[in-house]
Amino acid sequence: MNGEQAGVRAGQAVSGELPVLCLDVRRVLDGVPAHPIRAEFRFDAVSPMVVSVMFTPWRGRGVTWRIGRELLYRGLYEESGEGDVQAWSVQGEEGEVAWLLLESRESSAVFELPVAEVGEWLEATYKIVAAEAEADALDWDAFLGELLDDRERPDDRPAVPRSLD
């Protein structure tokens, strides 16, 4: 992000409207922040444990990642997550930032996130659904469907466990 905060837009939760945060983040290559990417953070009270983030490069198609809300929040201030999604705070050129690591089978990327903006947005989501109320507000069928992306098996049959003999 540049120091002018251009490209930052945060919606406020008012009368059913859920907050959306759009900002320009930088992809980190070889430990140096570069390559600006548009990131759109969305929160849905139906699936309060998850934040959806769409990363869109200036040229090309975007990709959406679903990240644990608590993992992202903790990662702004300390090491958080393991495996495919991790976040941790670092001191950046323009103040306090956090790095977000996303890995898939095909590729991986690290993004620099501004702690103040993302932290403020996440706090607004916790005002909509408090951390201790996440499980109560969760529609488990919708949550699991979203995580699995509602994909059917190719032959539309349930998986049959194999014997390990």
Rank of each mutant, 00 (worst) to 15 (best):
Q5R: 12
A98C: 09
P114C: 01
E120S: 12
Q12F: 07
V110C: 15
G62Y: 05
D30A: 14
T56W: 00
A10P: 00
Y73A: 14
A130R: 15
D44E: 09
A109F: 01
R66H: 13
D141M: 03
V50Q: 15
E112N: 04
L122V: 15
A87E: 06
M54E: 12
T64C: 05
D136V: 11
Y77F: 10
E103C: 07
A13S: 07
K127I: 02
L164P: 00
G83E: 08
P33K: 11
E134I: 09
V129W: 06
S104A: 12
P48G: 11
N2S: 09
T56K: 09
C22H: 08
R26C: 03
L71F: 14
E4Q: 08
L148P: 00
V97H: 02
R38P: 01
E96R: 05
F41K: 07
A133W: 05
D156H: 15
P48M: 06
D149V: 02
G31I: 03
T64R: 13
F111G: 02
R9T: 07
M49L: 14
L23S: 00
L71C: 08
R105T: 02
D149K: 11
V90K: 11
V63F: 03
E152V: 13
G62R: 06
V28P: 07
T64P: 00
V115D: 01
W121H: 05
Y73D: 15
E112D: 01
V160S: 04
Q12Y: 08
G119N: 06
D30E: 13
L144H: 05
G31T: 04
A13P: 05
L164G: 08
A133V: 10
D150S: 08
P48L: 07
E112C: 11
W88L: 08
W99E: 15
P161T: 10
R157N: 13
W65S: 04
V110W: 10
G7M: 04
A142D: 03
E123I: 05
R151E: 08
P36L: 07
R9N: 09
W58Y: 12
L147I: 09
R26K: 14
E4C: 03
R162N: 05
L113C: 05
A116R: 12
A10M: 14
F143A: 12
S80A: 14
F43W: 12
R42V: 00
A142L: 06
E112R: 06
R162I: 10
E96H: 00
L164N: 13
L101N: 10
A45V: 07
E117W: 12
D156Q: 14
V46H: 09
F55P: 02
G68D: 12
R59S: 09
P161S: 12
D84Q: 10
L101E: 02
A45T: 00
R61L: 09
L113I: 08
G60R: 07
L138P: 01
R66N: 15
W99C: 13
D149F: 03
I128G: 03
V32P: 02
R9L: 12
G145H: 01
R38S: 02
G68Q: 14
A135E: 13
L102G: 01
L72P: 11
S47C: 13
L148M: 07
V85W: 03
A133K: 15
E70G: 05
L71G: 03
